[in-house]
């Protein structure tokens, strides 16, 4: 119980950042929260469903482009566009799954990567949204949203600051929703089945778990959330191009490092990972490429010496797991 209270206090403190903190901090933490959403998703895929995708940037880009299309071509509200982005990403994940699920292990990784590159190249053919060079989100479409006016009435500040505030809170809400949903899902029948498949596929099938159905479900749901996150990211960024929206480095490589450092296959792992990632980024921001080299070396070291990452090693050392994903075994009936 206490762990939930600490967690709640932490979430509340984060929610207060836009009111008390500087705008630069809000923008920084927005990116961190979005990376955390992507990391939680990738962890579900690779750490729990065994689907090592190198192509999640496809769904970030699709969500972002769908949001832009809704705003620019259909004149919809950007927040609505973001939700449409999630739905479009999920719809497109169905044919992707039909293709990629025929491939196993490493083939799956390469297949998803190729699919993401196909998506990037296809979207750069979309001339109405700027083709290969991309386009900007009309400022007024974002800043004239009714909710922006309400935020300004409440907290003052410029329109742009109110947009940052709104996107920040949406990102925080998305993080909390994904965390809660993952927690409930992983402790449900379906989630336990998924972990059973990961730990021993043969035994899991023997007790009636259908691995393909479960994995497809996870693939579709993570595509949905990743698409929403892509839409949200690009509302805040305000400018889209195929290379930025479908960036392997930004939306998949960093995310993989975050999950690996924090602890793959553990629920709190991505949170620890994103904190380390942010700390490193702040400390080494002036060194450019050195930062990436260090990140790569840390990732390699983790795989060599502590495969379950920082969180997994912590649990292994101390035996203390505040967020257990299993259920306590029922108490043995004592003979009377």
């Amino acid at each position: 119980m206490r762990i939930f209270l600490i967690f709640l206090a932490f979430a509340l403190a984060l929610a207060l950042v836009p009111i008390l903190g500087s705008r630069a901090l809000v923008q920084d933490l927005f990116t961190v929260l979005c990376l955390l959403v992507l990391a939680l998703n990738w962890n579900l895929l690779a750490g729990f469903a065994g689907l090592v995708s190198v192509g999640q940037q496809a769904f970030v880009g699709i969500g972002a482009y769908a949001m832009f299309a809704c705003v620019i071509l259909l004149g919809l509200n950007p927040i609505l566009g973001m939700l449409v982005g999630g739905l479009v990403a999920m719809a497109l994940s169905v044919p992707v799954a039909f293709f990629a699920f025929r491939l196993h292990g490493a083939y799956f990784a390469i297949g998803t990567w190729a699919v993401a590159d196909i998506a990037r190249l296809s979207f750069s053919q979309w001339k109405a949204l700027g083709g290969g060079t991309g386009t900007a989100l009309p400022k007024e479409a974002v800043q004239e949203m009714a909710v922006i006016q309400i935020l300004r009435d409440l907290f003052g500040g410029s329109k742009a600051a109110a947009v940052d505030m709104l996107t920040y809170w949406l990102a925080l809400a998305l993080v909390l929703a994904v965390l809660a949903a993952s927690w409930i899902f992983l402790r449900s029948r379906l989630g336990l089945g998924l972990q059973a498949v990961r730990d021993n596929p043969v035994a899991a099938r023997a007790v009636g778990v259908d691995p393909t159905r479960l994995k497809a479900l996870v693939f579709l749901l993570t595509a949905f959330v990743t698409g929403i996150c892509g839409g949200l990211l690009f509302i805040q960024i305000g400018r889209i191009s195929p290379d930025a929206a479908f960036s392997l480095l930004d939306w998949t490589a960093f995310v993989i490092f975050i999950v690996v450092i924090g602890g793959i296959g553990t629920l709190p792992g991505p949170i620890i990972g994103v904190l380390v990632f942010y700390g490193l980024e702040r400390a080494l921001a002036d060194y450019g490429t050195l930062y990436l080299i260090l990140l790569g070396l840390i990732g390699i070291a983790i795989m060599l010496f502590a495969r379950r990452g920082l969180w997994g090693s912590f649990i292994q050392r101390t035996g203390f797991d505040p967020l257990p994903l299993g259920h306590r075994a029922p108490a043995r009936a004592t003979p009377e």
């Binding site: 993989i256 990436l292 080299i293 790569g296 070396l297 390699i300 795989m303 495969r307």
Partner: peptide
């Protein structure tokens, strides 16, 4: 390096070579 991560699980070699790729690329860039 690579012999130490080869095994049943395909994830460790995948992630180690991925880290190596980032290190080489940025090392060359520097």
């Amino acid at each position: 390096l690579l012999n130490r991560v080869l095994g049943e699980d395909i994830l460790p070699p995948l992630l180690v070579t991925f880290g190596l790729s980032v290190v080489i690329q940025n090392g060359l860039l520097t």
